[in-house]
Design a protein around this nucleic acid. Structure first.
Length: 685
DNA sequence: GTAGGGTTAG
């Protein structure tokens, strides 16, 4: 066995084979060595024209891989004879440089020159360029060529074709190719799953997942990340757990991506503990791990904890990125923590993340939810990049602030700018119509405009219509609408109707609706109180007693207020002091706001336990004398509090803003809608 | 001698 000669042979053939050397240099992106070989080739130029062609192709490949596209182009232009490899190598260079349109141009000249039939290499590169530049028309032309030439059966080409359709949001086109052309590999599964997820087609994604489970494909880490992502989007913990088990059994390396995907899945499926457990066992935490766990805290309602983690993260010397800022801004939005949000704004500005679209969106959202719609609009006007979310937060911001006209203006601007509205956009637009009482226009958006943009109305849109009708005082119409539309109405829809019944003092219908709401959500204290309040207003004391009994049976406690605050004694003292002072200004306690089965002499005390009075007292105790006080409530304020707040504002010379927040839950997100914005009565006198 | 998917956090 001539073993001893083998290495020498190999070395010899390498020296004699500049093409192989060039490939080595290209693969390792070693420009220096590559140039030396190039020089050697030029000096010893004694080869046939065919091997000259191959050598030049190799050189194009070398320079393209090393980021020297102009040199590659010069070589290409100087060639007397080119073949398909010359074209595809140059095209790959343009694709890698992000010049997708140049690739399409090259492809056109190649086809029209007609002496080189494009092969699978060319088509994958060209299709990728269509994907990158989102050119569905050119992509479809390629599809035609690919079908005629039979290249569609090539796995790489098929994958690139499917990916092109997904990138161009043509899910139907993608699925057609995916399921009619035989042949799958882990790449095609990953790409189609990821694309469907990106486009929000969860049903199709689930079907593809079923295929993957059935077929005998070896999952790679991308598959795991994508399937965890699917579990998160669907909020199916069982699926997530199953996939996690599978992963642990097949001991695939769990890199930073996989770990973040698992934490994200547990966070979104409500298993914060599991996410935290993984986080605490991570050896090296990147900014992504930190941001993912902060987002998990945020999604589960632990907003303060998200901030505490930010402090810890900085102690470990990890710098925040744009996503970190977005999560923190959303946390402060949920707390309506305007000052903290403004501080984060300054930080994001200083660290250069202000111009990222997600940060801009989070800033607009934060200012809008913290009550400063002017600041929200300022960020919106100055923003560099906009996407659908940008428009949506601004439209819903205006809408929640009761500025329906401005909301609809922004929507018009969105259409003029050529941006496509989505599902959420129309929720915001319809709620703006509700604020403005534009019944006809609301129906027009629902029935005509949404169809025009190919958006199927969902329960949230129908709920907006219920709000639209009932806010306009058309309560019976709203009720009839609910029975005529066959959609699964949730508690929010009924709650919308209920609030309107109360507002329009239609206690008859209100009571019937409230009974439904109580049945759907037996633990919501607010409904019981509203119901008993309505019975009281209708002077139906038997009803009040019934509700009170029901609450006692179901162990639902409300009054008196919560004493858990460490300073509750001082707060109550402050309330008493304020009430005594405003009595001198003409305040008469309205004891009809108190439940009937309380002794008369206690009623006045109970009034002072109402949370908005406690909150204002606490605000006065803790803030500088010129600071405005913002109170955010989940329930509508009672008449007594409304009167009292007006007088307290006058007495203390403070701006007091009262907000009503309703949490609407859809797709697991939490949005806040301010129904009662800056009650005119609460503004400075 | 040339080619594909590219993940997490709003």
């Amino acid at each position: 066995m001539p073993i001893s000669r083998a290495p020498k042979d190999k070395l010899f053939s390498l020296v004699e084979d500049p093409v192989r050397l060039l490939k080595l240099a290209a693969d390792n992106k070693n420009l220096k060595v590559g140039k030396q070989i190039h020089a050697h080739v030029v000096v010893t130029d004694k080869v046939s024209s065919h091997s000259n062609l191959v050598q030049t192709n190799s050189l194009i490949n070398l320079y393209e891989k090393c980021g020297r596209l102009s040199v590659a182009r010069q070589l290409f232009d100087s060639m007397r004879l080119r073949n398909v490899v010359s074209w595809s190598s140059l095209m790959a260079g343009y694709l890698h440089e992000g010049l997708a349109l140049e690739v399409l141009g090259l492809f056109k000249s190649m086809v029209s020159a007609d002496y080189n039939r494009p092969n699978e290499f060319v088509l994958t590169t060209v299709l990728s360029s269509c994907s990158d530049s989102v050119r569905v028309e050119e992509g479809k032309q390629c599809h035609g060529y690919v079908l005629k030439s039979g290249l569609v059966f090539h796995q790489h080409v098929k994958n690139a074709l499917v990916h092109m359709y997904l990138r161009c949001s043509d899910v139907k086109g993608a699925m057609r190719v995916f399921s009619t052309v035989p042949g799958y590999d882990v790449f095609s599964y990953n790409s189609v799953l990821d694309g469907l997820l990106e486009e929000g087609h969860l049903k199709e994604a689930t079907e593809v997942l079923r295929l993957i489970m059935r077929e005998d494909v070896v999952w790679d880490s991308v598959t795991y990340v994508t399937v965890f992502g699917l579990s998160s989007s669907l909020r199916i913990l069982r699926l997530g757990l199953q996939v996690h088990c599978r992963m642990l059994k097949t001991d695939i390396e769990s890199d930073a991506f996989v770990n973040s995907a698992i934490m994200d899945m547990y966070g979104k499926c409500g298993k914060l503990v599991n996410a935290v457990n993984i986080f605490e066992h991570l050896r090296n935490r990147t900014v992504v791990s930190w941001t993912t766990i902060m987002a998990a805290y945020f999604q589960n309602g632990y907003f303060e904890e998200a901030f505490n983690l930010f402090v810890k993260m900085k102690l470990e010397d990890v710098s925040p990125n744009e996503y970190t800022f977005a999560v923190l801004l959303n946390s402060s939005a949920s707390l309506s923590a305007l000052r903290r949000g403004a501080l984060l704004h300054a930080c994001a500005d200083k660290s250069g993340f202000k111009d990222h679209v997600i940060v801009g969106n989070a800033l607009i959202n934060m200012y809008a939810k913290s009550g400063n719609i002017e600041a929200a609009n300022e960020v919106f006007s100055d923003i560099q990049y906009r996407n659908a979310v940008t428009w949506n937060v601004m439209i819903s911001g205006y809408s929640h602030h009761g500025l329906g006209k401005k909301a609809l203006h922004v929507f018009q601007d969105m259409l003029t700018a050529g941006d496509h509205p989505n599902y959420i956009t129309f929720v915001a637009v319809l709620s703006a119509c509700a604020h403005l009482g534009l019944v006809q226009q609301g129906f027009d958006y629902l029935n005509r405009v949404m169809k025009q943009f190919g958006i199927e109305p969902g329960v949230e849109h129908y709920t907006c219509i219920v709000g639209l009708l009932s806010r306009a005082g058309l309560l019976d119409e709203a009720k009839n609408y609910m029975s005529s539309v066959s959609v699964k109405w949730d508690v929010i829809a009924w709650r919308t109707l209920l609030d309107a019944c109360f507002l329009h003092r239609n206690y008859g219908l209100g009571k019937r609706v409230a009974e439904i709401v109580v049945q759907m959500d037996p633990n919501d204290v607010g409904t019981y109180l509203l119901l008993s309040n309505m019975y009281a207003k209708a002077r139906r004391w038997d009803g009040v007693v019934k509700i009170r009994k029901l609450m006692r049976e179901r162990n639902i406690e409300k009054e008196p207020g919560d004493n858990s605050h460490p300073e509750s004694r001082q707060i109550y003292k402050k309330v008493a002091e304020l009430l005594a002072k405003i009595k001198l200004l003409g305040y008469v306690p309205d004891i009809t706001a108190v439940l009937h089965d309380v002794e008369d002499e206690q009623k006045e005390d109970f009034l002072s336990y109402h949370s908005e009075k406690l909150a204002i007292a606490y605000g006065l105790m803790k803030t500088p004398s010129e600071a405005p006080i913002r109170v955010i409530k989940n329930l509508r304020m009672c008449d007594d509090c409304h009167t009292a707040v007006k007088l307290i504002s006058k007495l203390t010379n403070r701006i007091v803003e009262l907000w009503h927040r309703v949490y609407l839950s859809h797709h697991g997100e939490t949005r806040a809608e301010v129904l009662e914005n800056k009650c005119p009565a609460g503004l400075p006198f």
